[in-house]
């Protein structure tokens, strides 16, 4: 079984947020409003944070794109009481809306803050599409029917693309990649099988120094960053 992972080259990343937009569009995540964003009740399956070090003029700002880290040792799966969050065999940490009771324990336990609670029923104009993507006839039934308020959502590494691609016999990481990787104008992102030594992600990790976020928490994330 593959172990899907992502490598983000911070040297190439310009912080343009194309990945965040692509994610919202692909996964039908509502836009929210500026007020909701200040209150932090909007959903961001993917976000880009800016971390500054030092004082002007000797200041350095790093843009860190943050999808879900899809940890090998996920704290959210550990604390979910309803088995709504689970790790698939290929390592993707999934959220089953039908099982989720909305206790928000996973939001409290996630060291990366990538989990989002759905605070309201989305209005029609906030959707990119009337229902969750993609066409259900391609991949069969989703693990959850509709988006509703009161459940926790998160990045899925665009599992629908991966599953559909595997069914069609395409090469994952070359022909089929998650929406954020697809959208990156500087090709700062790579997606592929971390266990496959021929994949681009393994090659990049072997060639350059890399790190993961909050390594001290022992979560072993599958999203790796190549340092500047």
């Amino acid at each position: 079984m593959a172990r899907w992972g992502m490598v983000i080259d911070l040297d190439k990343c310009t912080g343009c947020q194309a990945c965040s937009i692509a994610c919202k569009s692909e996964n039908n995540v509502p836009f929210g409003s500026p007020e909701e964003n200040t209150r932090r009740i909007t959903s961001y399956w993917h976000k880009v944070i800016a971390a500054s070090e030092g004082e002007y003029p000797a200041v350095n700002i790093e843009m860190i794109p943050m999808p879900c880290m899809h940890c090998d040792n996920p704290p959210c799966v550990m604390v979910c009481p309803a088995k709504a969050t689970y790790a698939r065999e290929d390592g993707i940490v999934m959220q089953n809306f039908r099982r989720c009771i909305g206790c928000k324990y996973c939001i409290a336990a996630c060291p990366y803050g990538v989990r989002n609670y759905n605070y309201k029923d989305q209005t029609e104009q906030e959707y990119n599409m009337p229902d969750l993507p993609p066409d259900r006839s391609v991949i069969g039934p989703w693990p959850y029917p509709h988006r509703s308020h009161g459940v926790v959502e998160k990045c899925t590494f665009c599992f629908h693309r991966i599953d559909a691609g595997l069914k069609e016999g395409k090469k994952i990481g070359v022909d089929v990649v998650p929406a954020c990787v697809d959208a990156c104008p500087t090709r700062a992102r790579a997606f592929g099988d971390l266990d496959d030594t021929d994949s681009e992600v393994s090659r990049l990790l072997a060639a350059r120094g890399s790190f993961v976020l909050r390594e001290e928490k022992g979560t072993r994330p599958k999203v790796h960053y190549l340092s500047k």
């Binding site: 009771i101 509703s148 926790v152």
Partner: peptide, 22 residues
């Protein structure tokens, strides 16, 4: 406090629908 209070019973399906490490 649950987002989906109608699924409250899921908290009491011990060892069957529950993840007992939680």
């Amino acid at each position: 406090d649950l987002g989906r209070p109608e699924k409250f019973w899921r908290l009491f399906m011990f060892f069957y629908l529950n993840n007992m490490t939680s």
